[in-house]
Amino acid sequence: MKLFEKITNPREIRRKLGLNQQEFWSRIGVTQSGGSRYESGRNMPKPVRELLRLVHVEQIDLSKVRREDFEIVEYLKETHPDLYKSLRKAVRAKMEAQEGSSEATAS
């Protein structure tokens, strides 16, 4: 999913995760009633949509992300682009392997 891509059905995402509205929306700082309005078709602001994507689609725990982490990534990209690409490739391979093993376990 691309940055700020339109999320057309937050209710579907919530249901796939098995969360009630309170659990789902509170993780991104939205009240249950506000989330209900978004699920009913009200236009979702870009910041809310992006938080929903990061937390519920990408499964990123925002409580663990620090500004320093982004600065380190940018520094690594600028000063050691080959190492950055190598690390990125290794992380993607690890994620694909985990997805494959979790799909095999679910079968």
Rank of each mutant, 00 (worst) to 15 (best):
Y38K: 06
G29K: 12
G41K: 04
A106N: 12
R92L: 13
A93T: 06
M1I: 03
V91G: 12
A97W: 00
V73C: 04
F70W: 13
E103G: 09
E96M: 03
R92F: 09
P10C: 06
L62V: 08
N20E: 02
E96V: 01
Q22G: 08
I13T: 01
S36H: 15
W25P: 15
G29I: 02
E50A: 14
V65L: 00
Q98Y: 03
Q32F: 03
P47M: 04
K2W: 08
H80A: 11
E96R: 07
S36Y: 12
T8I: 10
D82W: 02
A106T: 01
S36F: 06
Y75A: 14
R66M: 03
K89S: 14
N43L: 15
G34Q: 13
E23L: 03
N20M: 00
V91T: 03
F4L: 08
S36P: 05
R49S: 15
K89I: 00
K16A: 13
R92E: 15
G35P: 10
S101C: 01
G18D: 14
Y84W: 09
N9W: 07
P10W: 14
S107R: 09
I13Q: 05
E23G: 02
P81V: 02
V65T: 00
L17D: 15
S86V: 02
R14G: 00
E78P: 06
L87Q: 10
E58M: 11
R11M: 07
S102Y: 09
V57R: 00
D61M: 07
V55Q: 07
P81Y: 02
Y75W: 13
M95K: 10
V55L: 07
S26W: 06
Q98K: 10
A93M: 08
A97N: 06
G29Q: 10
L3S: 08
S40G: 13
E68P: 00
E58Q: 08
R92M: 07
